[in-house]
């Protein structure tokens, strides 16, 4: 009796508009959720399981080792030390923010062919990372007498009478890393510019007008109007920069393969799994990376929830006044 009584309203409910909406959306959601499960959740769970095992690529002779892999990561200094190369990318991303902000401010002022410039600057972000890396692999080539012509950069410099420079070399890991960071900036700065343009455009023109009336110069306008208004976007960008710096992969992997002291944590993880054949340890490294990324994401969420709740509060008080 009880079930029947419960069942009947369900049958009725499913015929209602609400019910239809519900099961149709469930059916449609099934596809992306399935894809997500097969290609993301199942492998991720497997990875966490593997991180407690001693196993090779072939999955033969698997043995459980508990937290031994994690112990290895935190005791063997050579593993975590590759994070130091991430610092280059972190520094690079600060420079990237400055450039992006500068260009965005310029593009928001009254200039010609704004759209064209936006398009050109955003284009590298649309290009595949592998393609970008291959282009820059050729860009930094130091020529070889009689065999290889100078790369793009050295050819351009030679016009100004500058001797060809060996950009990526073991002699100077600093220069090699700077080159790679430059590629990273080149690729991602367009995205930041668009973000900043969006933020700056959302500032009410009334404020500018008022500032003009008060005789503010462009710097003062930036300092007292633009900067405070786009602060949330800047902090979001910085958090994204941290994430990016930790997980940088394709640019160094393709240009140097991680040689010449340009390796990153992700490249090391791949080498550990597929070159050193220690899939268990590599999984543990990947889990640690995952945890770091989750922490950073939570921080980001935390900061933005603060802003959101403040906004809500403000709105509430405004409504209350009304």
């Amino acid at each position: 009796m009880k079930t029947k009584r419960k069942h009947a309203p369900f049958k009725k409910w499913i015929k209602t508009y609400e019910g239809q909406k519900f099961y149709i959306s469930v059916l449609f959601l099934l596809i992306p959720v399935l894809l997500l499960a097969v290609f993301t959740f199942v492998p991720a769970v497997n990875m966490i399981v593997y991180s407690f095992q001693d196993r090779d690529k072939y999955g033969a002779n698997v043995s459980w080792v508990g937290i031994q892999n994690y112990k290895t990561i935190f005791t063997d200094t050579s593993i975590l030390s590759t994070f130091k190369n991430s610092l280059y990318y972190l520094c690079g991303s600060f420079i990237q923010q400055v450039i992006a902000l500068l260009v965005a401010s310029i593009l928001c002022s009254k200039i010609r062919a704004k759209g064209l410039f936006k398009g050109i600057l955003f284009f590298p972000y649309l290009m595949n990372g592998v393609a970008v890396s291959i282009i820059f692999k050729k860009f930094f080539v130091k020529g070889e007498r009689g065999i290889v012509p100078e790369g793009t950069l050295n050819s351009v410099l030679s016009v100004f009478g500058i001797e060809p420079i060996k950009w990526i070399s073991a002699e100077s890991p600093l220069l090699a890393n700077i080159c790679l960071v430059f590629v990273s900036i080149w690729r991602y700065v367009g995205f930041d510019i668009i973000m900043y343009i969006g933020a700056i455009n959302s500032i009410s023109p009334d404020l500018y007008e008022a500032a003009d009336l008060d005789g503010a110069n462009p710097w003062q306008r930036f300092k007292y109007i633009v900067f405070p208004s786009i602060k949330p976007i800047i902090s979001l960008q910085l958090i994204l920069a941290v994430k990016g710096a930790i997980s940088v992969f394709e640019i160094p992997y393709i240009i140097t393969g991680g040689t010449m002291n340009t390796s990153t944590f992700v490249i090391d993880t791949i080498n550990t799994a597929f070159s050193k054949n220690k899939v268990g340890l590599a999984s543990a490294m990947a889990v640690i990376l995952l945890v770091i990324i989750i922490i950073v994401t939570l921080l980001q969420k935390y900061f933005f929830r603060e802003d959101g709740s403040k906004l809500r509060q403000r709105r509430k008080t405004r409504e209350g006044k009304r």
């Binding site: 692999k137 930094f140 080539v141 070399s169």
Partner: peptide, 9 residues
């Protein structure tokens, strides 16, 4: 040796 070790082919 060759000059640019990073770009051998």
């Amino acid at each position: 040796l060759e000059e640019d070790h990073a770009n051998t082919d």
